[in-house]
Design a protein around this nucleic acid. Structure first.
Lengths: 115, 115
DNA sequence: TTGATATACATTGCAAGGTTATGTATGGTA
DNA sequence: TACCATACATAACCTTGCAATGTATATCAA
């Protein structure tokens, strides 16, 4: 393997939920598509496995941030579609605020380094 | 308690090590001072406990990113001073790259939301 | 028809790491 | 004398990422 290093575990943990919520805020989607979308948006740098994502989706649903419904795709295959609930919208904003806070401190420290 | 919400656990896990490494990249420091520095830099929004930080410092040292030495402070009290090693400098850069990547994807999604 | 690949979701088990609680010890101050 | 801030350490608990494994269907090429 060469090139892009895998994301560190802790950063994956911290980014998974905000990324999922942000993607669903653009409209209904399903697990497999979310994995592909994250890969696309990151320029192939973030590659989630399904074994990682599905438990996360269940957890977020248990927390009442998203809801799901089973439906058939155009191809006849069954899919579980997820969409954002009101609580999920609020959770997303909270995540974004906290990310901004930490990112601000970190980038501040990085700037200081060159002064 | 009112006002600032506590950082989510996952975000704490993802930010602790890069923050510690970045602070030490400015020069030698010790546990208690690192806690206060993070509090200051975050505008009192990030308040680490010592029970949380010391195991982190030990882990980072085990990973060979930092080294420590015991010394006396001006007040005569004993302190464990930490400083960045070569591997720690590289680890810090790797953390910063990964943070930038995730932050880019997240902020991209947030912008999209208003288009 | 056979095999390979992509799609699509689920669960089990291990390891890693934050949090809380607890312990030890010293210096300054009211 | 009592209390608080300073300063470090560790044990127990709980959450959670993530790899491994399983099930099932659609598509397409050989």
């Amino acid at each position: 393997m060469y090139g892009i290093a895998m994301l560190m575990k802790e950063l994956v943990a911290a980014s998974t939920e905000p990324l999922v919520l942000s993607i669903l805020s653009r409209g209904e989607s399903y697990g497999y598509a979310v994995i592909q979308e994250v890969k696309r948006l990151s320029g192939d740098k973030i590659e989630w496995t399904d074994g990682m994502l599905y438990p996360v989706m269940h957890r977020i649903e248990d927390r009442d941030s998203i809801k799901s419904r089973w439906d058939e795709s155009e191809t006849g295959r069954k899919r579980k579609y997820y969409s954002l609930k009101k609580g999920g919208k609020m959770a997303m904003v909270r995540h974004q605020e906290q990310w901004s806070l930490v990112h601000g401190v970190l980038s501040g420290l990085q700037k200081e380094h060159y002064v």
